[in-house]
Design a protein around this nucleic acid. Structure first.
Lengths: 173, 173
DNA sequence: TGATAATTGTTATGGACCATATCAAATATC
DNA sequence: GATATTTGATATGGTCCATAACAATTATCA
């Protein structure tokens, strides 16, 4: 290739930086230019997702619920009596990886596995009383501390539009 | 708690399912109800992000570039002469984890580390000629096969609105 | 019916990604 | 010039994701 190691062809562009990045004359650290990166959907999407999860975890710190755990509780509440395979697959979680997740929820007495009498292979999932109570509190925290910030930031209409577009991507892309 | 193991309190709600989930009378598998889950920003955001990355990888299969690798090439092209710490940090990658990523790009002759003469600790990053050529091809693939699908799916105006809102979340949340 | 195939939950395992501690070399600070 | 800081790097552990394989149970069907 054409790049000589330990070379220092200095000064060519405004974004040049080959001689002392810090500050040519005791200036600022000079922030980088994102350029086309800020137009890449995947990049922005990932960063936004990380921020949202981060905020979610902070809001849920008192209940110690991760986004995945919360989604399981929500889905089991809405669909009581389903087995592990059904709950896991609709969440995009592979059965092997769902076991430890459930072990955790069950050890905390939030969810229970009940061996089905019809198909004794499968475990039917149900929320415990404690699980229902925790989920109720979790929903309130999410609504008041998490989703509400989105409304402040984007506005109600925009927030709904965002959700609609993301759903479209998730389902039709 | 109050859940009896191996219990089968059948029939109570429309979403009941304690007796034979498959099909009570040879019906369909009965899809689960997502319920409030489809209103959770984090949930939809994560699923959309996975779909977008998945599509990105397919579009880039011929060039074998991951989203992270692509973002590094883009950033180095836009900011030639910066060192590893600077490139990594603006991408949210920790320096230790950036080493292997760069090793990969350098071994494929897409990017080069050049020891700076000003600060002999740091490695200045530059795209090789091959790296520039590959990046050019990558940009075309992304534009024609990846981002274009977003326009088809959402429309130009909506796509821009989506990007704007995600950026706002990524930066101000 | 009984032999075979399929399903369910589970374990084991490996890979990718992320985070922290630590190190040597080089530089900055005082 | 002694000490602290920075840079790239290694080692390591954690979490998440994916595959193979297994025992128990059920479905299939000759």
């Amino acid at each position: 290739m054409t790049v000589s190691k330990t070379a220092e062809k200095s000064s060519e562009k405004p974004g040049d930086a080959t001689k002392g990045r810090k500050d040519a004359a005791e200036g600022l650290p000079e922030a980088l230019q994102l350029g086309e990166l800020s137009e890449q959907l995947g990049y922005v999407l990932k960063r936004a997702q990380l921020k949202v999860f981060e905020n979610f975890l902070r809001c849920m710190a008192s209940l110690q619920l991760t986004p995945a755990q919360f989604s399981v509780l929500l889905l089991v509440e809405k669909n009581p009596g389903r087995n592990q395979t059904e709950i896991a697959s609709t969440l995009g979680i592979l059965r092997p990886n769902f076991v430890a997740l459930l072990d955790n929820l069950e050890s905390r007495d939030l969810c229970a596995r009940i061996r089905s009498t019809n198909d004794r292979r499968s475990h039917i999932l149900v929320l415990t009383d404690k699980g229902k109570a925790v989920l109720t509190r979790a929903k309130k925290l999410v609504a008041t501390k998490h989703e509400s910030r989105l409304n402040e930031l984007l506005g109600q209409a925009n927030r709904e539009a965002l959700l609609g577009m993301l759903s479209k991507i998730a389902n039709e892309f």
